[in-house]
Design a binder for these strands. Structure first.
Lengths: 146, 146
DNA sequence: TATTGTTATACTCTATAACTATA
DNA sequence: TATAGTTATAGAGTATAACAATA
């Protein structure tokens, strides 16, 4: 993680600054989640299934942009940790649900994430702050094609 | 029966939106650099050493936030591709310099990167655009500590 | 036919520890 | 002593192909 940033001529490039900012912030969040023994993707899944019921593994992957195949080890870890359970919807699909222990861990997760988000926004000067999320959402909204 | 796919409730979180935006944009840039047979890190190195003379491998790593150890295969690839050469500074350090072929590839790289950056900024609505780079730089400037 | 869950695999990026040769 | 370059390695994240069972 960058503690100091030497003067970098590439810093005028928004795309480069975007990458650096995201890397720095995600490293920071990753570190803050270590005490909960959760990765960022784990936390995302817990927070998502808490607000959307009857989400299957495929559903979660579509929303969070995680490949179906990569959901398997992720959910297996959360299940092994006792945080989620699989509840059959039909003979093909399973809903991913929080266990009581998962709900407790979610509360801690939310506290950490909220604090992280607040700290992140606090680092942005007042006049730029309200424009940050709208700008990011404009980027994710549609792909940039040549 | 198809279940409905709700919007992502995590999109209200700036940190999450930052991660999604960076992932999407970096995937886009990666794809655009494929014709040049360069990765984003490769392009960054070429652009950096073009503006800073006598950069050692360690210097480049410090500026671009790449571990010393990870610079080795990166520079080896660029050298094998004939784009850079190593020029001894003393018996311990080597400057990384562009070859003539490297300078040609750099020109193509700059064209692609400039187009990419323009397209990226164009996706952001006018009223938010001037705030984007300053916000990002505020995030990279100092670490967010609890 | 299309989708779900899964296995296997591979490639990239990143992080750390340790070694050597030299400053 | 500290730094430059390197080797080896391991952990993540990500991507694709393929398969069986079911919708």
């Amino acid at each position: 993680m960058p503690r100091v940033m030497p003067d970098d001529p590439l810093n005028e490039l928004p795309g480069y600054a975007l990458r650096r900012a995201a890397n720095a912030m995600m490293a920071e969040l990753t570190a803050r989640l270590v005490p909960l023994d959760l990765r960022i993707s784990d936390a995302s899944v817990l927070m998502l299934i808490a607000e959307r019921t009857d989400m299957t593994s495929s559903d979660i992957g579509k929303v969070l942009d995680i490949q179906r195949a990569n959901m398997v080890p992720l959910l297996n870890r959360l299940e092994a940790a006792g945080l989620i359970a699989r509840k059959p919807i039909d003979r093909k699909s399973q809903a991913v649900v929080l266990t009581p222990e998962g709900r407790e861990r979610l509360a801690d997760t939310r506290a950490i994430v909220t604090c992280f988000e607040d700290d992140l926004m606090a680092r942005i000067p007042d006049e730029h702050r309200p424009h940050f999320l709208p700008a990011l959402r404009a980027l994710v909204g549609q792909p940039v094609d040549p």
